[in-house]
Computed example of a mutant assay.
Amino acid sequence: MSAVISLENLTVAYRRHPALHHVSGEFARGSLTAVVGPNGAGKSTLLKTIMGQVRCNSGRVVTHLAAERIAYLPQQAEIDRSFPISVLDCVLLGYWARAGLFRRISRDMVQRAEEALAAVGLGGFAQRAISSLSVGQFQRVLFARILLQDAELILLDEPFNAIDTRTAGDLLRIIQSWHAEQRTVIAVLHDYDQVRKAFPQSLLLARNVVAWGETEGVLCHENLHRARSMAEAVDEHAPLCAVDVHDAGHEGSAPR
């Protein structure tokens, strides 16, 4: 299978201490991959680097898709819900990459947004303010927005964090439907049992790649023990990482 994302000797450092260290590998087109590892392993940093929100210090990310074909769901803690916007308008932002700021929202677009809300279990919520929603309800709204984006690559940072079991199950079924449609999904997760049951591929990080491949082999006892040991051995007072301070950039190319 062809690669959607290629990581080539990627190093990302904060204050010259590595958050990701010499990471190489590929996410195959149509794959469903969980990114797992101890706290501070670089999982969220990896997604932000793929999105170009964090600059790499050496190596590079090669994206084999146009930017508008990528959807990104950050952690809820990074989203300001105090902005006075309705559920429907929040979902309609899924058209942003294709429609831009000034294109008129058509009745057909509104209908598709309402259908997306129904698909995530929020029929009838269109005019509610996003500030009035629970954490789980707002996560459903964000998934409805991704449905409108019709992306080929979907990046999810802790999509099940702090939500109830029923909502997590509903959203997991949506993720599995994306996988069935041959979309590429990469999700940062913490629940290893959930990963084993629902995610065929896994990337185990501890700043370095511990293991990457089929989940059954990646999440073996030896690898998990190694990841914990690597995370616990990190010394924040160690000598600075000798990375190339001349950023290699975030490179991308649309498919031809």
Rank of each mutant, 00 (worst) to 15 (best):
F143P: 06
A144G: 06
A144I: 08
A144N: 07
A144D: 02
R145T: 09
I146E: 07
L147K: 07
L147S: 00
D150N: 14
D150V: 10
D150T: 13
D150L: 10
A151K: 13
L153P: 02
I154A: 05
L156G: 03
E158P: 07
E158N: 11
N161K: 13
D164Q: 04
R166P: 01
T167L: 00
T167R: 03
L171A: 10
L171T: 11
L172E: 14
L172D: 11
R173N: 15
I174F: 05
I175H: 03
I175P: 03
Q176Y: 06
S177H: 12
S177C: 07
W178I: 11
W178A: 10
H179D: 01
H179E: 01
E181V: 12
Q182E: 10
R183W: 13
T184D: 04
T184R: 01
I186F: 10
A187K: 09
A187Y: 07
D191V: 07
D191I: 11
D193H: 13
D193G: 06
D193K: 09
D193Q: 12
Q194H: 12
F199P: 01
F199T: 09
S202Q: 07
S202D: 06
L203A: 02
L204M: 08
L204E: 14
N208V: 09
V209D: 04
V209L: 01
V209Q: 03
V210E: 05
W212K: 02
G213K: 05
E216N: 09
E216H: 08
G217Q: 12
L219T: 02
C220V: 14
H221A: 09
N223S: 09
L224N: 11
R226L: 14
A227V: 07
R228A: 08
S229Y: 12
S229E: 15
M230R: 12
A231F: 01
A233Y: 03
V234K: 03
D235K: 00
H237P: 00
H237L: 03
L240E: 00
V243N: 01
V243L: 06
V243P: 02
D244S: 14
H246W: 13
D247Q: 15
G249E: 13
G249C: 07
H250M: 11
G252P: 07
S253Q: 10
A254G: 09
P255L: 12
P255M: 09
P255V: 12
